[in-house]
Design a protein around this nucleic acid. Structure first.
Lengths: 174, 174
DNA sequence: TATTGTTATACTCTATAACTATA
DNA sequence: TATAGTTATAGAGTATAACAATA
């Protein structure tokens, strides 16, 4: 059997020998992108049996931990626009893993809940993801905890820079 | 003047008070996603005057540092499929920042080069991105260098896990 | 037979804008 | 007048598949 078209390990952002990366190698942001690329692919491998993206996994967790969560609040927690939260919720309900119920206190809003099917799915996913994370931390050894703390600090610092009052040349869309 | 529809700081993956994040808060991968989200938005703010995504910036750098770079090699360095490298190159040439020239040794291939316009653009972009990175590192203090080293280690570890011979339940597409 | 790049197509993710129903 | 969610649409980004030219 011969390979058909592209059986390459695509998406694997490996440093290519002979290519000069110039200033990229020195940038914190580029190191972050490389790490996220590798981790994303590894997440897919670890959860290959269930075909759920990191984002969808996060949504399942948030709904499970906050039964009756508003669609809008789900979007806010995940950095999504309302319309993105809508599509995410549509997908989860189409899978039969989540459902919308009327919110008792506001007739405009939905409350989101996991179905029994969704709960069963999440139990397996959480186990796989936790095992995957433990394996990573084990491979990183002592530096793992420091790395996580550093990332949280970085998120905070970058957010502070973005939202500082003196730093507001916000992007203009055409 | 009143706001029209959605002037919210969208995309800003902030922890929402009152929402239980469950296991997400403990995951290295989730901390990484939060940091990348914040850094991405901050990158856009820092380069708002030029409207270039991190990916397009990286492509400009790679072409500048490796004149005559093949389209396919560009894609490989950036973790893209051939078709993705094509679209990226199309965009860069449409801006007048890069151009395709015949490769001397292989009539199938192109060599990629920056135009004078592209070079001028890159000089400004590199300065803005470098200043942005310096500001981040300054805000992080001593932990900045350790964080970068940790990220590089993480990328290596995750890649090793993904590609280990005993770990190959690769994702099947339908 | 394999590789480089192309065309055509499609799916995901995300956003904007305009709309409805409710507050 | 503002908010929760929806609809419609658009643009990135990325992938697959089939193809031509070249190696």
């Amino acid at each position: 059997m011969s390979k058909i078209d592209s059986p390459d390990p695509e998406g694997l952002m490996l440093p290519v020998p002979g290519v000069d990366y110039g200033p990229l190698d020195g940038l914190l942001g580029y190191a972050l992108r490389r790490a996220q690329n590798a981790l994303y692919l590894d997440f897919y491998r670890a959860t290959a049996d269930w075909d759920v993206s990191p984002q969808r996994f996060a949504a399942l967790v948030l709904i499970a931990r906050n039964p009756g969560l508003r669609q809008g609040l789900l979007g806010q927690a995940m950095g999504l626009h309302r319309s993105g939260a809508l599509r995410l919720t549509d997908w989860l309900t189409a899978q039969g893993w989540a459902e919308r119920r009327d919110a008792p206190d506001d007739a405009r809003a939905w409350g989101l809940y996991l179905t029994p099917n969704g709960k069963r799915r999440l139990v397996k996913l959480e186990a796989a993801v936790a095992a995957h994370d433990r394996a990573l931390l084990a491979a990183l050894g002592d530096s793992g905890a420091a790395l996580k703390a550093g990332l949280e600090r970085l998120a905070w610092v970058a957010t502070a820079q973005s939202t500082a009052p003196d730093n507001q040349p916000r992007r203009q869309k055409p």
